Simulated assay, not measured.
Amino acid sequence: MTGISIAVRWALAGALVLGPAFGGLAQDAFKSFKQLDSTAKMPKLNAFSATPGNPNAMASRDVAMEARLTSDGAAMQEGLSWRVFSPIPGEDGKLPLVASSEGGSADFQLLPGNYFVNVAFGRAGVTKKLAVPAEGDMEKQVLVLDAGGFVLNAVAGSDAPIPQNKLSFSVYSSEVREDGERGLVMSDVKPNTIVRLNAGTYHVVSEYGDINAVVRADIQVEAGKLTQAVLQHKAAEITLKLVSQPGGEAIADTAWSVLTGSGDVVSESVSAFSTMVLAEGEYTAVARNKDKIYQREFTVKSGENKDIEVLMRYDPQLAGVKDGQQVSQE
């Protein structure tokens, strides 16, 4: 896949800003893009075999095929899946598969006739109608995928890294259907995974944790290019603890509820430590332990992970002060 260029983009709260390539990172991404599906090329397969000893049987033709990401790009050497179908549906209504190959360029032995040839590169693909003549020269078949790809990642705040096990992406089509929804292209895409798609615009949704930290961005896939997109989450990881005194041990068997500033419950759990990712904003932590209720208001700031202590006693000197001072009510 010589000739693939690397485009690097930064997605900030749904906006994309062009930036320079990341040096060694770009080279690594290029290498991965080229070798992600480095399966060995299969030997050429016969679609049909002429009947031995039958002089009237038609001879199969050698058909060579190659695929390119762009019309002026080099032939791709790895990562391709080739499928050749008969145009006549079978009893099940599907087009019969007569030959296949994995790897780079492909060579097939095909009897004269018509076929459909499909080549796929990840989620990108193209299909071409092929006519194999009984006589005359058979030119090499070149299929242009018009495809590229992107690698997704995200940060919290300006540049705080996010653990990969707490981050996932979904890719949707850019068009909105009549029902107001977008078509799902891929779900549960992990960070730093190369996604290969036909050129076009895609709507990407990033989820940090499993509560309310969600950001969206439209990302352009350009033919022959690998784009690196980094989305920015305005969220942080919070750990709630019920304690008898500041800095004390967390009290076990505590039931937790977290409410937004408008009173909506966004999380409920039972544990000594309740850890969650929350979008930036105002919240109230409610702790229940042995038929008593304690609570504390707190603020989540983008990229600032912290522990929130809820005291089991009320300190009148701290009344009315929040975020690190007034921590409880009994």
Rank of each mutant, 00 (worst) to 15 (best):
T2L: 14
G3Y: 12
R9W: 03
W10L: 13
L12P: 01
G14D: 06
L18F: 09
P20L: 13
A21T: 13
G23R: 10
K31C: 05
K31E: 12
L36P: 02
L36D: 11
T39H: 07
T39S: 04
T39E: 10
M42Q: 14
T51Q: 11
A57K: 06
D62I: 14
D62H: 12
D62R: 15
D62V: 15
D62T: 15
E66R: 13
D72K: 11
Q77P: 00
E78D: 10
G79F: 02
W82Q: 01
I88E: 09
E91I: 03
G93I: 00
K94I: 13
V98Y: 03
E102Q: 14
G104A: 11
D107R: 09
Q109R: 06
L110P: 03
L111N: 05
P112N: 14
F116E: 07
R123F: 08
R123L: 13
A124P: 05
G125M: 07
G125P: 02
K129N: 09
K129R: 13
L130W: 05
M138C: 12
G148M: 09
G148F: 09
F150T: 05
V151M: 14
L152A: 07
N153F: 03
G157P: 00
S158Y: 02
P161H: 11
P163H: 05
L167R: 03
F169T: 04
S170V: 10
S170K: 11
E175K: 10
E178D: 14
E178Q: 11
E178H: 06
G180P: 08
G183K: 15
R196N: 04
V205I: 13
V205Q: 12
S206G: 15
D210W: 03
N212P: 05
A217P: 00
V221L: 01
V221A: 00
A223I: 03
Q228V: 10
V230E: 09
A235Q: 02
A235N: 01
E237A: 00
I238Y: 00
K241L: 06
S244L: 03
Q245M: 14
P246N: 08
P246F: 09
I251C: 07
A252R: 01
L259V: 15
D264R: 10
V265I: 15
E268P: 06
S271D: 15
F273K: 06
S274M: 00
L278Q: 00
E280V: 02
E280M: 00
K290L: 10
D291V: 10
D291G: 09
K292D: 13
I293F: 09
I293Y: 12
Y294L: 07
Q295F: 13
F298P: 04
F298H: 01
T299Q: 04
V300Q: 00
V300P: 00
V300R: 00
L311H: 08
R313H: 07
D315V: 13
A319G: 04
G320T: 08
V321A: 13
